[in-house]
Design a protein around this nucleic acid. Structure first.
Lengths: 241, 241
DNA sequence: GCCGCCCGGATCGCATACAATCGCTGCGTT
DNA sequence: AACGCAGCGATTGTATGCGATCCGGGCGGC
């Protein structure tokens, strides 16, 4: 029954913000699709799951709504976001705008430490790729997202990093929703190529590779599926339980 | 004494979210420098100013901290952000990355309605430019920011629009902090040129003009002033009252 | 006289309590 | 039988209370 457990339930070790921890757990659950899009997240329920009061649950949900992973309707409650194809396209349009620039910046700014972390991450990704099955696919999506986050970190710009955090989280949700399962593993080699470009400090190449990479990810999506009617779109907002 | 008043204090007219209104008022006050950077924003005090309880004040402050306009220190309180030159540079680096792309997107997506609104805004800006004095300068900074927001709106991408909202707010703060007063009015003609390019659907020109525009804004800043020591930087975090 | 320590006030963190709102169910009416 | 409406349960919106934490000032020791 438990969705996730706080590392230290008696609440001392965790030190600073427990609400932060709740938010992270919920975000993971959403991005991993352990929480289906459209699911209602009752404040009381969330609070009970994490052994905190509604205050904290509410706070965490509000944070997630800022990130676009949760939709809050006044006097109705919070629901796991259920991005329609249009929203999905916007997410990727934003990535297409932002990420090449981040790659270029990372080319100029990346420290050896950054590069090492990227390399280490590539190894992680390869490990996930060897596995099969739905949980492996989840892990793969998550790892793939983390690569882009590391890239943003390497750019040395905290603001862009935070933007990317949001974009990656929403992308993961979109991929989980609309991804054709088949080709999603193609990403890894492209990641490697990007790191190569970074190490050569070849900004133009890095940018081009990132654009191609995003193209590939988006091409793997099936964003035309729900195109029946506007009624369907309206219904998709309801909880599928 | 009153910082700002809620349109309808008895709290009916405002309809949906009062915390939203509080956040907007505070943001305006910060961006306008009616609240000096470093000022402590006590939950109780904010609540009293807007006739709400700490709960709402806290919520509004938390939103602002997400936007980077307020810094929250655990068990200490909320303070108006006091961006150091490094942070200022990150803000503008982010804008330099994002805005040209937005301009290009706007070239492709802008509706006649968008263009009309941009034109109307240009007229507003010209009106502000004719006035002199500190309050006029504030209005000018704000109007200048709104132009970029309209541009983001014209791009048709809500996500990018929200990113720009944050960047513009932080930019306004940075300009207010580090701007040399003299040349800031140069921006207007550039705005006009950008709209011209949009109307011609000339994406390349629009991008180039936006980049030049951001260059000019940033060139007008004096980001080397606090370069004495790291001690100075540490002290700048304290409240100047 | 200077330094470190302890204590008090202020402020936040979080929980709980009360009020407002919404959707739903069941009844009465047409 | 279908529609409209009123009461009710559930859930959120908002306020307040209590304990925890941190900063600053006063006191004692060195």
């Amino acid at each position: 029954m438990s969705l996730a457990t706080i590392p230290d339930p008696d609440g001392r070790q965790t030190a600073d913000d427990r609400t932060q921890a709740i938010r992270d757990h919920l975000r993971d659950a959403i991005v991993d699709r352990r929480l289906a899009p459209g699911t209602k997240l009752t404040e009381t329920e969330v609070g009970a799951l994490f052994n905190v009061s509604r205050t904290m649950a509410r706070s965490a949900l509000q944070m997630l709504s800022f990130e676009g992973l949760v939709r809050i309707e006044r006097n109705r409650g919070a629901f796991v976001a259920n991005p329609d194809p249009g929203e999905a396209r916007q997410v990727f349009a934003a990535r297409r705008l932002v990420e090449p620039g981040i790659a270029a910046a990372a080319c100029a700014q990346a420290t050896p430490r950054d590069l090492a972390r990227l390399r280490a991450h590539l190894a992680d990704e390869r490990r996930h790729m060897d596995l099969r099955g739905p949980s492996a696919r989840r892990a793969e999506i998550k790892a793939s997202g983390e690569f882009h986050l590391l890239l943003a970190e390497a750019s040395g710009n905290q603001i862009l990093h935070r933007f990317m955090e949001e974009l990656i989280a929403r992308s993961s949700l979109v991929i989980a929703l609309y991804g054709r399962s088949g080709a999603s593993s193609c990403g890894h080699d492209e990641h490697g190529g990007i790191v190569d470009a970074l190490e050569r400090r070849d900004a133009a190449a890095a940018q081009a590779l990132v654009v191609r990479h995003i193209d590939h990810i988006e091409a793997d999506l099936d964003l035309d599926q729900g195109r029946t009617t506007s009624l369907k779109a309206a219904l998709s907002s309801l909880r599928p339980t």
